[in-house]
Design a protein around this nucleic acid. Sequence first.
DNA 1: TAAATAGTGTCTCTCAGACAATATCTT
DNA 2: AAGATATTGTCTGAGAGACACTATTTA
Lengths: 255, 255
Amino acid sequence: MDGVSSEHLPGPEGDFLARYNPADHPPFAVTADLALLAVERGELYVLTRRRLSHPFEGRLGLPGGFLGPAESAETAAERIAREKTGLGTLVAVEQLRTYTDPERDPRMRVVSVAHVGIAATQNARLPKIIDDGQSSWTRCADLTPEMMAFDHHNILQDAIERIASRMEFTLVAARFLPETFTISQLRMVYAAVWGTDLDPGNFQRKLLATKVLEETGERYQAPGGRGAPAKVYRPALDGCDPLRPAFLIPPLRRV
Amino acid sequence: MDGVSSEHLPGPEGDFLARYNPADHPPFAVTADLALLAVERGELYVLTRRRLSHPFEGRLGLPGGFLGPAESAETAAERIAREKTGLGTLVAVEQLRTYTDPERDPRMRVVSVAHVGIAATQNARLPKIIDDGQSSWTRCADLTPEMMAFDHHNILQDAIERIASRMEFTLVAARFLPETFTISQLRMVYAAVWGTDLDPGNFQRKLLATKVLEETGERYQAPGGRGAPAKVYRPALDGCDPLRPAFLIPPLRRV
DNA sequence: TAAATAGTGTCTCTCAGACAATATCTT
DNA sequence: AAGATATTGTCTGAGAGACACTATTTA
C-alpha cells in the first residue's frame, strides 16, 4: 500500500496528503546501486570504486547514486552504467533487490535499490572505464566481505547468483559478448559465471538445439589461437531469448 | 554506493554527512507492501483492502505501510501480515521487487518495496482476517488492473510469477498448507498457482522421488470426500527444501 | 453398483553427460 | 608432426509425460 492505510498514522484512515508530514517520518535516502559484471579471459569481473572517505575509507564499493526526482531506480542504474563506461545500449541492467537493513549505513537511513548489469566485452577486453580514476574492474573471485564497503559484498553475491540463474533459462549470457560470437566464447561465459567446467561437445549440441542462435556465415579464430576457426553466431532474436529446453546448472555446482 | 559518490552532490566527493542535507533531495516515502497469497479449494486468493479515500477511492489495494525507523522492509512486511491475519509464523514472506516509477503515486514520490507472502490454509479454509473491515480475500483470477489501485495489479502478477517459479525448485508450495497434508492437497496448490492441471499419478511419483516429504503414518480424507483416504506427509526439513530433480512448469503453460 | 480418489505400473521419448572420433588450424 | 580447438557422433541412464490398472472409499 502507499501510506494511506498506515498504522503509523494517528487516527482512522483519512486523506493522505492532509495527514502526511515528512517530519513525522524518519528521513530515508534512496539510492540505486549497480553491480556491473563483465567477463574477460574466462574470469568474472565487477566494476568497483575505491572509497576515499569515511565510512569504509579505502574499501571497495559498488557505483551508485541518488535517484533523481523524475527518475526510476532502473533509469538511475542505467545512467550510472553509462556514466562509468560510456557503453550505452551495450549494458543490460535489471533490478536485483532492495537492501533495507536499518544499520547498513552507519550515517543515516539509506535504502539501496540494487541492480545487476552486464557489460559487453569488445575485442575480448573489459570495457574502458570513464571515470575520475576511482573505478576499476576487479576479479570477483578475489573479493572478500572485508574488502568491500557496506553490504556490497552481499549485493555482489546476490548479483552473481541472479545472473547465473537467468542463464539457465535465457540467452542473457550473450550480453557479456559482442553482437556476434562463437559458441566457445559463450561457453566460457557460462563457465566463468557458474564457476564450473562444461563439456565443449555437449555444450555445443545443447545450445544449438535451442535454436536461439543463427549463423552469420563467418568464422573466427582468436589471435594466437589454435585449432580450427569457429563458426560465428548471433542471437536469433533479442539476445535474451528463452532457452528450451532449459540449461540447468550442473547438480554438483548447484549443491 | 551510498550517496558519497553521488553526481547529485555539488563539488568533488567529500564527507557524506557534512554535505548531505535532506532538504536538497526530493522527499521520498518508503513503504513495504505485501501480496499475501492463499489457496482455498484449488483457487488462488490475495488479501486486498478496499480503499476509502482518494486516490483510487473504491479500488482494491494491497496492504502496506511505512517502514519503521529501526525496521527493515522484510520486518515491516511480516508485521503487516501479522496485523492482518494474526497468523504469526504460519506466514512466509520474502521480498519481491521495488517499484520506483516516479508517477506511480499521484500525490508524492513513494517507493514501494513489495513483498510476497504465503498464508497457510487451516481446515481447508482461508485464514481469518483481523482488520477494521476493509480487508478481504479476493480471487486472483477475478482481479483486473482497473479494479486495483496504483500499480498493485502489476505487483500481484509479479508476486504470483515469483511463487510459481519458486515452486519449481523448492517445496515452498507446502507453505500454503497446514503442517501436515496429503499429496493431493499439495498438487492442488501447484495447479492453482501454475494455472494448469497436473496428472495425479505422475505428480505423486515425481514428488516422492525428491525425498522432501516424510510420512506421518496417518491417513486423511476430506469431509464428504470420495476415494481412498490419502497418506499424510510433512516436509522432511524446513518446508522450503530444494526439489531435486526440479519440477519445471509444463512447457505449454510456460510458453 | 457406480463414481471418485489414491497410488502403482508401464511404455515411450527426450535429454543430459561421458567420451570417442574426425576435421582444421597453429607452432 | 604435435598439439590444440571445433564439431559431430555414439552410447547410456535419468526422468517426464501419457495412460492403464488396482485398491479403497462414499453415495
